[in-house]
Write a protein that binds this DNA or RNA. Structure first.
Length: 487
DNA sequence: ATGTGC
């Protein structure tokens, strides 16, 4: 293995806005890194080993690294792994189907007064369970039984909209429904306990999941949501990892390294789990969106219209002009199909390409992009956010709660209802979203359609962190000695 | 990401 510190000098600038990486560690798998030289220089050295991992699954045809990439589980968060048959687990991740919703309104940002923002965040928090382990609270989805849950994870957006949806246009969801075989069932039994998902439908979760009110470049109010498949996807990933390890105990020791070749008895079964997890995540996002739209009507007396819903943790069968029919794993990467892509035929996006939803931190720009024909060079993929640049534990040590809270208040951004900013999710821990998106536009993968600035942010405070009373000195051990895992 | 760890 090449020294971790030397590899960056081997990345050859293609002059087209990306680097082609060729080292003996990668075999003959093409690796493209879509970064500026500066973003590449700032990348943690450990990412090289994870890029090598990404090329080592059976049947890998191509690997792309997006400009927001950072250290992840086995492969970088921000990687696109294209195979001709094998399905890898790390490159889908624990949060199967995690993704974004964007919505817009005609309401001028001037209506988002401090009082209106406070009422909005209060309404949202009352309606949407947030934080690890929290159950959903949406009236329509709480109390559903196991049979109805089965219909939801098999029917996806199509079933949800027909049965529950009030004002969702299915054309604005990336996938109506991912097909699940009748003969397949959820791996209920196992330590992963995916049944947690039954009561968690309609909840936001923790970590980097959020709800955010924004204003666009014309001064209209927009909204973004980031969430996934909660305990359901996590539980299934855990149980399938056990199956992968049992199948190849000598080789597969970490979930990062788990995979199923086409001849594995679990190959199709795992794809069913990915489809069910993605259907759950999509319904979760649509249900949360509708709940937020109700909160928005209460506060702003106006409608929020869905712009788009899209996942950035998924493996899907796709067509590529040079690679043919392939499996595209996107681990913290967003699909970007431009106008004329055959998979958009017959949809409302045929002439334009579909929207691409890119969040920045809650004190930085977020974006809605439009894919360009050049996206063929990245396997029809772009970044999924700004990308973490500071580990959570480091953030807890390095940042002052009061100083960060003051910065947000001065910027006019309300976080939750008390203005206390989760430090390990604050602006300083993320790369500049503008710099990351410029790497995408410079490479000709997409163009900017909307630039969105945060107004009000809802995000769970890490439950492990002791609550500090204002004005009282904090001597808790977790503030002084955090753990050093980045995600 | 997560019934969120050493």
């Amino acid at each position: 293995m090449r020294a971790d510190t030397a590899w960056k000098t081997l990345a050859a600038d293609s002059t087209r806005g990306w680097f082609d990486l060729r080292t003996e560690d990668l075999g003959d798998v093409p690796v493209r890194i879509f970064m500026t030289r500066r973003l590449l220089e700032d990348l943690e050295d450990g990412v090289y080993r994870q890029i090598v991992n990404a090329t080592r699954f059976p049947g890998v045809r191509m690997v792309c690294i997006t400009p927001d990439a950072h250290f992840g589980y086995g492969v970088p968060v921000g990687s696109v792994i294209i195979t001709d048959g094998s399905i890898a687990m790390g490159p889908v991740g624990y949060d199967i189907g995690c993704g974004m919703v964007s919505a817009c309104s005609d309401v001028p940002a001037s209506a988002a007064t401090p009082d209106a923002c406070l009422r909005f965040n209060r309404e949202v928090i009352a309606r949407i369970g947030m934080g690890a382990g929290e159950a959903g609270r949406t009236a329509r989805l709480s109390g559903i039984d196991r049979d109805e849950f089965q219909r939801i994870i098999r029917g996806g957006a199509e079933y949800y909209v027909a049965r529950y949806g009030e004002r969702v246009d299915r054309q604005r969801a990336e996938r109506d429904v991912l097909p699940v075989d009748d003969g397949w069932d959820v791996p209920w039994h196992g330590e992963g306990r995916p049944e947690r998902g039954v009561t968690q439908l309609g909840s936001l979760g923790g970590g980097n999941h959020f709800i955010e009110l924004q204003r666009n470049q014309e001064g209209r109010i927009f909204l973004q949501v980031h969430t996934g498949s909660r305990g359901f996807g996590h539980g299934m990933a855990t149980n399938y990892f056990q199956m992968a390890r049992d199948e190849r105990p000598a080789e597969i020791t970490h979930l990062d390294l788990g995979y199923f070749t086409p001849d594995s008895v679990h190959h199709r079964s795992y794809l069913n789990a990915v489809a069910a997890g993605a259907n759950y995540a999509i319904v979760n996002r649509l249900a949360i969106f509708e709940e937020i739209a109700a909160a928005f009507r209460t506060v702003f007396k106006a409608d929020l219209e869905l712009v788009y819903e899209i996942s950035h943790n998924l493996v899907q069968r796709e067509w590529h002009p040079e690679l043919g029919e392939v499996w595209v794993h996107r681990k913290g990467a967003t699909r970007a199909l431009p106008a004329g892509h055959p998979q958009l035929a017959g949809t409302v996006w045929e002439q334009t390409g579909h929207p691409v939803l890119i969040p920045g931190s809650n004190r930085d720009w977020s974006y809605i992009l439009r894919p360009l024909p050049g996206a063929v060079e990245s396997g029809f993929s772009v970044n999924h956010g700004a990308g973490r640049r500071m580990a959570r534990a480091q953030a807890m040590r390095a940042l002052s709660q009061d100083a960060v809270d003051r910065e947000y208040r001065a910027a006019g951004i309300l976080v939750n209802t008390d203005g206390r900013v989760p430090l390990d999710e604050s602006a300083a821990v993320y790369k500049s979203s503008r710099e990351v998106v410029q790497a995408v536009t410079h490479a000709g993968l997409a163009e900017v359609e909307h630039e969105l600035w945060p107004i009000a942010s809802v995000k769970a405070m890490d439950a492990r962190r002791p609550r500090r009373t204002r004005g009282v000195r904090d001597l808790s051990t977790s503030q002084r000695h955090g753990r050093s895992r980045s995600r």
